[in-house]
Amino acid sequence: MAVADATPVRPRVSAFRQLARSTSVLIGGFIVAVMVTIAALAPWLGTRDPAEVNPSVRNKLPGYEATIRDDEGKKVPVSYRLGTDSLGRDIYSRVVYGARVSLIVGLTVSLISISIGLLIGLVAGYIRWLDGIIMRFMDGLMAIPAILLAIGLVSVFRAGIFAVVLAIVVPEVPRVVRLVRSIVLSIREEPYVESAITVGTPTPLLIFRHVLPNTVAPLIVQGTFICAAAILIEAILSFLGIGIPPEIPTWGNIMAEGRTLFRVFPHNILYPGLFLAVTVLGVNMLGDGLRDVLDPKMERRG
């Protein structure tokens, strides 16, 4: 095939502009922004102490109004917008504070998995004798279904946010390693990288200058999907009662608590479930939009 010399000089539409035009990015970004705001402003959104137990207001339906004594013994009217759970805790406050845990877990898991995965992936892609060993090990890790691996890992640690984060990071790392390694291997073959080799660019500089920039867009996209997955897995672990300790308000914990009386008080599960679903949806839509713009060739992993 011949290549025209008369190729029109086409200015590239900036990635930023394209992002601003993508519906997925706009909707997803909006949802994420709202959730971040809620999480950040949790104490100022008319919430109570989410851990406060009050036996006198157990299992109330949404909209319940009560007068309770505050710390100084004064009677104050309280409205339980989303009702209360079986310990009399305010579900609205717990859901709002739950956003903090979810977002922190999502963000830390994706940052840690991407950093570790990037490092190992570069090593695997560039140091040939280590490649086989690393990749066999990663295959082994990937052969354990992610949730089971996380369940296994949380069972060996004392329950806590750190344990949960680690338990979710471990199954995600091999996927990042694979992605980075495949990018490195394909970029290495590019004529412009080979040209850089022939002009004597040392390998570390070569990786930094010519290879790494190509991993940025896919890793941003991948990081978004990892964030969504981490939020989901944290909720699942907490829901199963093996995640974050039950006194900490997380969406999964609220739902776990609500399971026994679900038939009578479905709101205990439905409200946190709604927040969880919308948040994950927002992050996923953001990821989809980012992928379409930054990295059209990539597909969601299975």
Partner: peptide, 18 residues
């Protein structure tokens, strides 16, 4: 140190520049 003596121009003009 000897790489500078030999330089190469590739076939595909669209992939030979970063």
């Amino acid at each position: 140190p000897h790489r500078k003596h030999v330089q190469i121009v590739f076939q595909d003009p669209y992939r030979s520049l970063n």
